[in-house]
Design a protein around this nucleic acid. Sequence first.
DNA 1: ATAGGTGCAAATGATTTGCGCCCGG
DNA 2: CCGGGCGCAAATCATTTGCACCTAT
Lengths: 143, 143
Amino acid sequence: MKQQNLAALPTLAALKDKGFRLTKIRRLIVGAFFSDTTVPVSAAELQLQLLASGTKANKTTVYRELEFLSAQGVIVEINAGDGRKRYELKRYGHHHHVLCLRCNTVECVAVENCALEEQLSGLKDFKVTGHTLNFFGLCAECR
Amino acid sequence: MKQQNLAALPTLAALKDKGFRLTKIRRLIVGAFFSDTTVPVSAAELQLQLLASGTKANKTTVYRELEFLSAQGVIVEINAGDGRKRYELKRYGHHHHVLCLRCNTVECVAVENCALEEQLSGLKDFKVTGHTLNFFGLCAECR
DNA sequence: ATAGGTGCAAATGATTTGCGCCCGG
DNA sequence: CCGGGCGCAAATCATTTGCACCTAT
C-alpha cells in the first residue's frame, strides 16, 4: 500500500529538503491532492477523505496542514463565496472555477483568450498581482 | 435634512408600492447605498456609517436589511474572499472588483471586451448563469 | 390593530489559537 | 533528544435564528 500516489513523492521530498517532517497525515494530505486533481476540497471534506481511508485527523490539524501547504506553495486557496474555503493543487496552467448554486460543488474550467489583467481600465495606482474568476450556475445533476 | 439622497427616492417608493414599510433604518440604508456608489460595504461598515450619522442600528437589523434589499434586487452581494460579504447598489453596467491584499478595501473596475461566459470550454452540462471576477493587488496607499 | 421591523441574546459554522503531549529525524 | 506536529478545548469572527416588543400604515 505504500506505492500509491507516486506523483506526490517529488513534492514530499521537496518539503523534506526544506526541513519539514513527513508525518503520516502530511503524506496522506499531499497524496490526496495528487490523487484527485479535478475538484477543490474544503477542510471538512479533506478530513472526511482521510477518515474514509482509515486515518483520524483532528480538524485543527487539517486546517494547519492546509495553511502550511498553501504557505509552501503546494496548494492554493479557492474561495467559492459560500462560507468555506477550498484548496486545490497549485498548477501552473491557469484556469478558473464553476460553482453549482444548488449543491455548491466546484469544477475547474479553462477560459480561452484569457488576458484579463491587461484589459483593466480606470485603475488609479493599483498594482494588480492576480485574479480569481468564478462562474455560477447549475451542474448537470442540479439542473 | 430631509432633502438628501434624492436618488434613493424611486427605490424607496418602489419598495413601498410592494407593501414594505419605509422605516428610518431602511431609508438610511438605501440612502447610504445611493450616496456612496463607488465602494461595496460590509454589514459592519454599514452599521458604523449609520452610527456615524447618528442612528444606532442593531447588527442583526443591518444583516436582515441587507438580506432584504438583496432579495428585492436593490443591492447585490460581493464576495471578496476575505471572510466578510460586501454589498453594493445593483446597477446594470457590468463591472468587477479589485481588492487590496493588505487593507482589504474593494474598488470597482471595468474590463474591456468582457465576454467571459462565451469563452468557457470543457463544461459538461453546466448551465452558467453568472460570474464574479476579482482582481487582487495593492492599492495606492498600501503599495 | 396588525403584520412587518427591531433589538437582544443565544446559536451556528467555519476557522484560529493556546497549550501540553507526542513522534520523526 | 528536541523542535516540528498533533489533539483537545476554548476563543474568534461573521452571520443566523428565536422570541418578545415596537411601529409604520
